[in-house]
Amino acid sequence: MTVAHAAGSPLEQFKITRLVEMEVGGLDVSFTNSAVWMVVVIVAISVSLLFAMRKGSMVPGRGQSVAELSYEFVANMVRDNVGSAGRAYFPFIFSLFMFILFANILGLIPYAFTVTSHIIVTFAMAITVFLGVTVIGLIKHRMRFFTLFLPKGIPMVIAPFLVIIELFSYLARPITLSLRLFANMMAGHTLLKVFGGFVVALGFLGIGPFVFIIALYGLELMVAFLQAYVFAILTCLYLNDALHLHH
């Protein structure tokens, strides 16, 4: 995406194009470039993990080590932040982490589309987590779940205000969750695009920006991982709040 669209606007890389127009019951379900990359992401995850684990040897090779490491990374995250009650949700959090990680990293490939650079995608994931966690908390604790919004030892006079503020703060969770991922991805890719444009425009003199782009790529790779991690760990923490109610 850096070099190819050098002539266009830096925002053009985020454009959705319909490859196959489809409609089901009035709902637009067209297969877009975003959908292509979602498919690429899940195929890449599944194939690489299955391929890495094909032998399942006692002494793992490089690929198997990475697969096991990713498993243990997320498993530890869930265990440390949610405890044993989080075990049931581990596959979901692992899927979420891998999906975001691969979407972020694959999006860094030139010409690629970054699924997670769209607010609606990150918001859909965040709201799923948010609603899921809230429902889990409500099922587990019924009405006691609402004590999450009432800090202990608060005078009755200001309690209603605090409950409203805490409720707003709670409702802000999916927004921050989705905004953070979206903003990081969009900012990083726009920046890469802009400097990619510099490289092409300056031609021979573009060596300076080119070096900068390499450094920026390293940084973006790190951000790609960090954002997937942040999304997954916040999911764990929200889940922990809902399961254990210690706000």
Partner: peptide, 29 residues
């Protein structure tokens, strides 16, 4: 393994990322 081993990208993300995070919290609510 020790769960609280550090992860990548601490130093470079730095202050800007933290400022962005605080701002995002305010904006979201």
């Amino acid at each position: 393994p020790d769960p609280h081993e550090g992860s990548a990208g601490r130093g470079i993300s730095g202050g800007l990322a933290q400022a962005m995070r605080v701002g995002m919290e305010m904006l979201a609510a």
